[in-house]
Design a protein around this nucleic acid. Structure first.
Lengths: 343, 343
DNA sequence: TTGAAAGCGATACCAT
DNA sequence: ATGGTATCGCTTTCAA
């Protein structure tokens, strides 16, 4: 249903004008005389005229909507990204439609299909952990849908991407752990096909190498679902602690992984940071309320949303012009706290 | 833009049929012969026909979209509510459009205007703390927009509402605190014009009365912005602790209030639960990771979303039929933890 | 069973 | 400066 009071036709009839004149007057066209403009505007205001956006979209072939696909909304990091997206989008007059993939490729495709059927002007996406093949995105991209990746980006599509400095963050975290005296640092990672995972791994390795430490492959645990399934992380941690040489520190790759690791380490009765240190990528609103307070690398989620939305809208509004895909790397910030012995 | 491959007209031309026949065949109308139906469907599938939902909406005067207005997306409770809403909506073929009011009446009105301009079939709303007057909602409701309230409901509109058992929750929390030996229990509340606030207050008073305790008005602190502004809560707590008779327990009304109270009590160096106990309404995913673990009343956020969406869609699809406004009260669950001395 | 045509609301080209 | 009209893609009434 559409809560519409009057249409252009109503105004035209009431004022004895043609549809086109009213339409033009409403848009402030220079070809319409002042008196007519004023009359139309006044009548429109008085009768609370509101254009039918559906009809406009149908005619103009644009909807001033942008679609967002991400794993899950109840997530401290992504929630802030959404806020960043909305701040830019609404200032430019775009409506944001958010859909969730729940880490499922199937749902990601469905979300994409739905969004495009509803006519979106562009897409912002952080892919699911199952998204190895990107043909579904490529199809739409090739047909002209502007796409910008954020957070979990994908290689292979010539478009913008906005992400955190994953390598730098993992490097800082690892170096910090080493400085604190930890030597057997385990790393719980997301699926390896994600660039993000490889970048973090690179930072981790670089810090180890710089310190002259060996990278023990036993200390690397891969979580195929990126932490969506708690058991996965519990298993990883259990395996780590059944090694002959157990780790003395755990580096977790995401919000959920950090939290799940925390919970499971406590359940196992491990004392943090004495028996084992814990640090991770995370955007909890209050990591200092945990016991002990969590050492984290904080990403600028809001800025990520803003940048991604900005680039997308620029693409949408300059569709004709050629462009060079940009890859934006946002700096992250190490927050050393008690969980790594920093007091 | 619309990623459309072919239209009904294309199919009609290709198969030498009229538009109407194709349209009917696509909908599986009984008036179309099997062979024609099959031909059309096959051709449509082969050429990846996808209906233009904008055009359909314009014609049918429905959009199969429902709008949601809430304070803020990055919120553990509301995030889960959204998931509940989506689970029902998507199963019934509705797209969910989420907008935020950020506790501002102005933004709430704007969100409402935008949503209705985009043609939503119905609205789910949890009002902002500033929403005392509900004329903006009434206007749309009177014009036929189905509305269902959730969480922060409003009186005065003859429509469904879905909320938690606020009175019961506050009662349980207060009774628990009393049982644990606390006697001067402060209550930090949301704005008093919200039914939710009054209900919680009632529960709090009922428990006090039952235990034969006086309700000291000094122990009641009202936060006009419902916790959106941290300073507000800090001030409330500071005032409580500058009383001649300080409280020995604090009952917080929401997620954000609970967290902010926690943080500020710690900043003040108050030992929880020895110097002061803390308990509150909250849906943190891991209240046991706090130090000390938080005693909370947990609301069934997902169920709230499901019920609200279910009622709304029912209203949308049976618009003609008269209905009796329902008020659904969802049970809550007390989780006693260390912050109230329960260890 | 199928087709023709009007119309949803807005826009823009072509006239005047 | 203003009006007439076709069009966007789809649905539906009326006719055949």
């Amino acid at each position: 249903m559409n809560i519409q009071t009057i249409t252009i036709k109503d105004i035209a009839k009431a004022l004895n004008l043609s549809y086109s004149t009213v339409s033009r007057a409403l848009k402030g066209s220079y070809q319409i005389s002042e008196p007519v403009k004023e009359k139309v505007l006044a009548y429109a205001k008085e009768h609370n005229y509101r254009p039918n956006l559906l009809a406009q979209s149908l005619k103009n072939k644009n909807s001033r909507c942008i679609g967002v696909v991400l794993c899950t909304i109840p997530n401290s990091f992504l929630g802030e990204v959404i806020n960043g997206i909305e701040s830019i989008a609404s200032s430019k007059g775009y409506l944001v439609i958010i859909t969730q993939s729940n880490e499922s490729l199937e749902k990601e495709k469905m979300a994409l299909d739905h969004l495009t059927m509803r006519s979106i002007d562009g897409l912002l996406i952080s892919v699911s952990t199952e998204t190895i093949n990107t043909d579904h995105l490529k199809t739409y991209h090739d047909r002209g849908l502007p796409i910008v990746f954020f957070d979990r980006v994908c290689e292979g599509l010539p478009t913008h991407m906005v992400q955190s400095d994953n390598e730098g963050g993992a490097y800082e975290l690892t170096r910090h752990l080493i400085q604190q005296g930890y030597r057997r640092i385990a790393h719980i990672t997301s699926p390896t096909h994600l660039p993000m995972t490889r970048e973090r791994l690179t930072g981790y390795h670089r810090a180890l190498k710089e310190a002259g430490l060996d990278a023990d492959p036993d200390l690397l645990k891969n979580c195929a679902h990126g932490g969506a399934i708690v058991e996965e992380i519990e298993t990883a941690i259990n395996e780590l602690f059944s090694l002959s040489k157990v780790p003395d520190a755990v580096l977790a790759a995401s919000d959920r992984m950090t939290q799940a690791s925390f919970q499971h380490l406590r359940a196992l009765g491990k004392s943090i940071p004495n028996q084992v240190a814990l640090a991770g990528f995370s955007n909890f609103s209050a990591p200092d309320l945990f016991s002990p307070a969590l050492t984290t690398v904080v990403q600028d989620a809001f800025e990520m949303g803003k940048r991604a939305a900005g680039l997308l809208i620029e693409r949408i509004e300059q569709k004709h012009k050629p462009f060079t895909p940009e890859r934006i790397i946002l700096p992250v910030q190490l927050k050393a706290r008690a969980s790594t012995g920093s007091v």
